[in-house]
Simulated assay, not measured.
Amino acid sequence: MEKHDQLLMKRQNKNLVLDILKTKSPISRIDIAKMTGMSPTSITRIVNELQLQGYVRETEAVASGVGRKATLLEVCGDVLYTVGIEIDKSLLKVGIVNYVGEIVSLHKNKRNESESYMETLLKIKAIIRKIMDENDIAATKIIGLAVGLPGYIDYKNGIVKVSDQLKWKDASLAEDLKKLTSFNVIVDNELKMKIVAESFTGKAKDSQNSILIGIGSGLGSSIMLNGEIYRGETNNAGEIGHTVIDPTGNVCNCGKIGCLATYISEGAILADSRKVKDISSIEEVFQSYRDREPWALNIMDRASTYIALAISNLLCLYNPEVIILSGNTIEKLPEIKQAIEQKCQLYIWEPLKQAVRIVYSELSDYGVVLGAAIQAQHLMLELE
């Protein structure tokens, strides 16, 4: 037991030193010792191990100041890589991310809504191989890949239980993709992947408690509490799209009546728009809103009202430091931000207004890919 405890402490110390190097480099050995409280001898031993494993190298820079100059250390970004993947109804994104969280390469491909499950997986395999070849990355340096997609995901077993947008059900995605690529695979809801990216480098970077709301082809949220993703019992925490707001309202594709998504999602907005005008795309609705056509103003005014109500309800339930709005609707119709903020002033409970920041994601193109790759690194990297 004593030997086990010593090994555990050594591993924890090694991880601590590496975390400091990742966030503070270039940094000297003596500064690491001061930050950790460990002896300079222990730090030298740990750094030597990390150098032998390829995680750390000495830079040409030296620390300035009085006395002997200290050589600085930095993390080697190319020591390992993870692959992040986003699968959406009409778009497929695949990116390779290095050890320090930089996207080395990002490929975007159109996805036909009619293409089969296996066609999508084969396309992913081909894109990964192409990126590896283009960037001369050996398979031995990739420790795994992670997929973010919309739907109800059994993340422990890598199974897509239901994805209405992709029309997948009980798909063993992690197992099937591992068979095709030979890499270990994790699968999760795309908003849970994206909030990892927001916490790593985005709008929630300095927050322990945050909520990300995605508004687009669907509607959902992900919740970060005390620095960890809050999943609930079945990984469905944050599925606000299926909260019932009007029991006499619209029929949802989940079978219930009056779900929030039936008033905010792009499909719901399009369906209501087509009752008034021959509309072929959500972009036409947004343009009609900009042109101040009365029907479009009314539909989007109702949508902004329900978005503000969703924000208010989430604030009352979880009291986060920051709420991040993201998704296609926010990105393609930035004019709606002002309407949402005005409605938030009306509906948010006064004691909560001053404590929260309502902001907008700036990780539009790569948030899910980056978050997935970071999550893969967190879960798959084991330091000996």
Results as ranks from 00 to 15, higher is better:
Tyr360Met: 05
Lys123Tyr: 00
Asn189Arg: 00
Leu80Glu: 07
Thr71Pro: 08
Glu190Tyr: 09
Val17Asp: 12
Asp272Leu: 12
Asp278Cys: 07
Val322Gly: 02
Glu384Ser: 14
Tyr152Glu: 13
Ile96Met: 06
Lys89Ala: 10
Gly367Leu: 03
Trp168Cys: 02
Val62Asp: 04
Gly77Asp: 12
Asn13Gly: 06
Ala63Asn: 09
Ser64Trp: 10
Asn313Pro: 02
Asp188Ile: 04
Ser361Glu: 00
Leu315Glu: 04
Gly255Cys: 07
Lys89Tyr: 05
Glu335Gln: 10
Leu52His: 11
Cys254Thr: 04
Gly327Thr: 02
Gln165Pro: 09
Lys178Arg: 13
Lys69Leu: 11
Leu225Glu: 09
Ala376Thr: 09
Glu113Arg: 14
Leu18His: 07
Ser172Lys: 15
Asp136Val: 13
Gly220Lys: 04
Asp206Gln: 13
Leu333His: 00
Lys337Ile: 06
Leu145Asn: 07
Ile30Trp: 05
Arg290Asp: 09
Gln342Ile: 09
Val276Lys: 15
Ile215Glu: 00
Val187Ile: 08
Arg11Lys: 15
Asp291Arg: 11
Lys205Leu: 14
Lys343Gln: 13
Ile32Asp: 07
Leu149Asp: 02
Asn184Met: 09
Gly37Glu: 01
Leu92Asn: 00
Asp78Cys: 03
Leu16Asp: 12
Ile27Ser: 07
Glu115Gly: 05
Met380Glu: 08
Ala237Arg: 02
Arg57Met: 12
Lys277Arg: 15
Asn184Glu: 15
Ser64Asp: 12
Ala268Arg: 05
Leu92Glu: 04
Leu309Tyr: 08
Ile245Asp: 04
Leu8Gly: 06
Gly101Lys: 02
Lys205Val: 15
Met9His: 12
Ile159Met: 05
Ile213Glu: 00
Ile27Trp: 03
Ser105Gly: 02
Gly367Phe: 05
Asn236Leu: 14
Lys108Gly: 01
Pro334Met: 03
Arg292Val: 04
Asn328Tyr: 08
Ala303Phe: 04
Pro294Ser: 09
Arg129Ala: 12
Ile223Glu: 03
Thr262Asp: 02
Lys123Met: 08
Gly218Leu: 02
Leu383Gly: 01
Leu309Asn: 02
Gln165Tyr: 10
Ala204Gln: 03
Gln375Tyr: 09
Ala261Asn: 15
Ile307Gly: 00
Val62Gln: 13
Ile215Phe: 01
Glu284His: 04
Leu21His: 07
Lys69Gln: 11
Thr243Met: 11
Ser273Asp: 08
Val251Pro: 05
Thr59Val: 12
Glu228Gly: 05
Lys192Arg: 15
Lys130Cys: 11
Thr41Gly: 12
Leu177His: 07
Ala268Gly: 07
Leu333Gln: 06
Thr181Phe: 08
Ser364Lys: 12
Leu383Cys: 03
Lys130Ser: 15
Ala33Trp: 02
Ile124Thr: 05
Ser288Leu: 10
